[in-house]
């Protein structure tokens, strides 16, 4: 675990000493800031509806699907291609620790990205009535769904040895998870399958529950389990050189 922590620290340092991370942060804040501004016009300044409009909309989903693959694409793919992974493993660190550390660093950066928007919400809270509970729960949802999407990125990065291929594959995994929501149109209200689709759908969790202030612990169980399973698979993929 100690080694995983040291690697996590180094990964986080590597992210923040790179100008790319700061460019992503600035662009993310600008795009999401503009998105919130337009959403505010759409909901006629009603801050209670703004969370759902701002975070349940297309721009927000685009960010959710695209940002994790971009953060994770170099994690293992690039290092594997350059031989850095081999140098890392020589120190005796386990495959699982490498996967956990790389994922944690990517996820923390993802969380920091969303936290960049908090000052905007702070300003809005000063000029209007903001339901901080809804905002908090929505952010928790974004973080837990993001954890799974980052894990998809790590898995894609372990499967390929080229960052762009990794980003493309992770994007496809994320879109696949995102598309589960639309299976609901195949079922009628009351069908058991519909309940399953809703249980697995990130769009349902964020759009229909969390941004409405509904906190369902099953959301965290599902996305947490999915993240752990994907990270386990990533570690197994990394081990395949020994099979």
């Amino acid at each position: 675990m100690k080694r995983a922590y040291f690697l996590f620290r180094k990964e986080l340092t590597s992210i923040f000493v790179s100008p790319v991370a700061w460019i992503i942060m600035v662009l993310f804040t600008l795009v999401m800031g503009a998105n919130l501004y337009l959403s505010m016009i759409a909901v006629s300044g009603d801050l209670k509806q703004l969370v759902a409009a701002g975070y349940g909309g297309l721009v927000s989903w685009f960010m959710l699907l695209v940002i994790p693959p971009l953060i994770t694409m170099k994690s293992l793919a690039d290092e594997n291609r350059q031989g850095a992974l081999e140098v890392l493993m020589v120190t005796g660190i386990s495959d699982a620790s490498v996967v956990a550390a790389k994922w944690a660093a990517a996820w923390i950066f993802y969380v920091i990205l969303w936290c960049c928007l908090l000052p905007l919400w702070g300003i809005l809270g000063m000029v209007g009535v903001l339901d901080t509970g809804v905002l908090f729960v929505t952010h928790m949802g974004l973080f837990v769904v993001g954890a799974a999407y980052c894990a998809n990125g790590i898995l894609a990065s372990a499967l390929t040895s080229h960052p762009l291929a990794s980003a493309g594959l992770a994007f496809m995994f994320n879109v696949g998870l995102f598309m589960i929501h639309w299976l609901r149109f195949f079922f009628r209200p009351g069908d058991l399958e519909l309940l399953w689709v809703e249980y697995l759908s990130a769009v349902h969790h964020i759009g229909d529950e969390l941004t409405q202030g509904i906190l369902d612990i099953r959301v965290f169980v599902w996305w947490g389990s999915f993240t752990l399973l994907t990270l386990f698979l990533s570690a197994r993929v990394l081990e395949r050189r020994r099979w």
Binding site: K2, R3, F6, L7, R9, K10, T13, S14, V17, S18, E79, Q82, G83, A84, E86, V87, L88, T91, G92, I93
Partner: peptide, 21 residues
């Protein structure tokens, strides 16, 4: 194939490697 993380300084890299070792 020596792959060094170019964004780090020599001391940062060697300290990180020392900890891992």
């Amino acid at each position: 194939q020596l792959a060094l993380p170019g964004e780090l300084r020599v001391d940062e890299y060697l300290k990180f490697r020392s900890r891992l070792k």
